[in-house]
């Protein structure tokens, strides 16, 4: 499998030792470097130090990314990687990246991160990048090991192997993502005359709820994007509801349109022809969900 990368290649490796990880990751990156591609290594700090050492002089041409704090929410992680890849692609025609995947201990969140790996295939589908996701097989729970084959079209086993278990991201997300529903206790504040008045009303609620200043701005920007979508594609905003629910500030925007059913909406990295409103909203907030209700199609934003 050669690079000559013109679109995303999202591949995976499950390694059984530190030595195997280093040997395969270094060989993969060096092949790309020889072809003039950019190179990225994403790992925890000890992993970066290891790779830096193994790459020797080639390390100078590699961008090292500390992932220790990057895996908070899938949309945030996608945005972080997108920024790194975009920067690389300003200097090189294509790139190779080795990214060590950070799964937590809670089985409850494994579906969320499996969804992230899956949607990665579509999020960056347009980028000339060959990404090798690496998993430490010594600590990998069986469901994640299985998910590696369901979320990567090709896996580096003894050789590059096409996965016969690969699932289309939309299908996988629809199966694993929990549907949103209306939140109790929210207060209607209405939309107002225009986006400016909407932001003024929303800002009053955010300030009254004690939301920190920088997070208030995040919510104002995110909600503006969602409301703009409702106006542009949803026949206008019927109502806005806000309040605190279980510690989070929530904003629900009800529109007058038929709604949509697209589980990857807002996960596609910005590119010509793809709207970026939901991408912005997702990267600034904890969660953006959609549901149909008797009063209209509703977007739910949790800060």
């Amino acid at each position: 499998m050669r690079s000559g990368t013109t679109a995303l290649r999202h591949t995976a490796l499950v390694y059984d030792s530190r030595e195997e990880y280093v040997a395969r990751a270094v060989a993969f990156l060096r092949e790309g470097l020889r072809s003039g591609e950019g190179a990225v290594v994403a790992h925890t700090r000890p992993g970066l130090a290891l790779m830096h050492e193994a790459l020797g002089p080639d390390a100078a041409a590699v961008t090292f990314v500390d992932v220790s704090a990057a895996y908070t929410r899938p949309a945030h992680t996608l945005a972080a990687y997108h920024d790194v890849y975009a920067e690389q692609l300003r200097a090189a025609p294509s790139l190779r990246a080795v990214a060590d995947v950070q799964f937590g201990p809670d089985p409850g969140e494994w579906d969320l991160w499996t969804g992230y790996e899956s949607v990665f295939n579509e999020s960056f589908a347009h980028l000339p990048a060959w990404v090798l996701c690496t998993y430490d097989g010594r600590v990998l729970p069986e469901p994640i090991r299985d998910a590696v084959w369901r979320t990567h079209p090709v896996v580096l086993d003894d050789e590059w192997t096409r996965s016969d278990r690969y699932e289309q991201p939309g299908r996988l997300l629809r199966r694993t993502a929990a549907p949103a529903g209306p939140l109790p206790g929210l207060r209607p504040i209405g939309f107002g005359r225009d986006a400016e008045e909407f932001r003024e009303r929303l800002a009053r609620e955010l300030v009254a709820a004690g939301v920190p200043e920088h997070r208030t701005l995040d919510m104002l920007l995110a909600a503006t994007e969602v409301a703009a979508n409702a106006v542009r594609h949803g026949g206008g905003v019927r109502d806005v509801r806000v309040g605190r629910v279980a510690g989070r500030f929530a904003c629900e925007i009800v529109d007058a349109g038929p709604g949509f059913d697209d589980p990857v909406a807002g996960y596609l990295a910005p590119r010509p022809g793809i709207g970026s409103g939901l991408w912005i909203a997702r990267r600034l907030t904890w969660q953006v969900g959609f549901f149909r209700a008797p009063e209209g199609f509703t977007a739910q934003i949790l800060l």
Partner: peptide
């Protein structure tokens, strides 16, 4: 927040 990666044909 929505700055796209450069298109393929603009890379060096």
């Amino acid at each position: 927040l929505a700055r796209p990666a450069p298109p393929l044909d603009s890379a060096p």
